[in-house]
Design a protein around this nucleic acid. Structure first.
Lengths: 125, 125
DNA sequence: AGTCTTAGTATACAAAAGTATAGTAGTTAT
DNA sequence: ATAACTACTATACTTTTGTATACTAAGACT
């Protein structure tokens, strides 16, 4: 597949297709904000309950957790599963799309680590 | 190098090292907000002047452009070069780190496009 | 002297994101 | 009857992010 890097290399970025821009802003929306990545990290373990997320993620309030989970669900990133027991059991889990975001996270960590190394180096030049 | 995906696969994410988290938030800080990616996209063409950025990036105000460029400069992502001519010429350009962010952008576009395809599919199931 | 250009800054405001704290509904346990 | 647990919601507030509009400084141009 043709990548963004390819487009840049050929100095064609001005014609960067709209579906690329859409895909990019989609991804940004999914990971952006203070709590999205911590939530995703917690869900990568498997199915988790509201209460456990509240405990695992330091300092998040129920309001923010509820809001973010709703957004992630609407965006098809997270599934909310209700088990009709008593007491009611509700579990959150990542969809397949949700699981695949690790590729993006890897690329981000990769860049971030190289970038840190380079900014330290350049301070001593 | 050990990736985030590796950590998840081995169910070890709880011990996810701090430098990974730092690298990840660094990257997120660089690309998030409304204007960062449009500015980066414009700078990928080469050296650009303030005025040209104002024209290339639709609807950005000089205040926001100035603010974002300063942040990107502080983060070692962009370089500001002053040519002592008359009239003064100032050019902005990406550092090497800045250029390499295309890898992250590629991963994001990739995920975004697959995710879009999957959410459309799942609507008809 | 007045206008143009470049590269911004200043001030005030609106909107979005996040925080703090308390409360609710439906059980279950004592 | 009262207390506890789960999964939230409500209200009010603060902080951050972004917008609108106008202005400045320094030289060049006429």
């Amino acid at each position: 597949m043709e990548t963004f890097t390819d487009l840049i290399d050929r100095d064609k970025v001005q014609q960067c297709p709209k579906h690329y821009v859409l895909a990019l802003t989609d991804t940004l929306n999914v990971i952006n904000g203070k709590w999205k990545l911590p939530i995703i990290a917690s869900l990568l373990h498997g199915r988790v309950r509201f209460k456990d997320l509240l405990e695992n993620i330091e300092k998040i309030t129920p309001r923010m957790l509820s809001k973010e989970l709703k957004e992630l669900e609407i965006n098809g990133f997270v599934k909310r599963q209700v088990y009709d027991q008593t007491p009611v059991l509700i579990e959150y889990l990542l969809t397949d799309s949700g699981k695949h975001i690790t590729k993006v996270i890897d690329a981000m960590i990769d860049w971030g680590m190289i970038h840190r190394a380079e900014s330290i180096k350049s301070r001593w030049q």
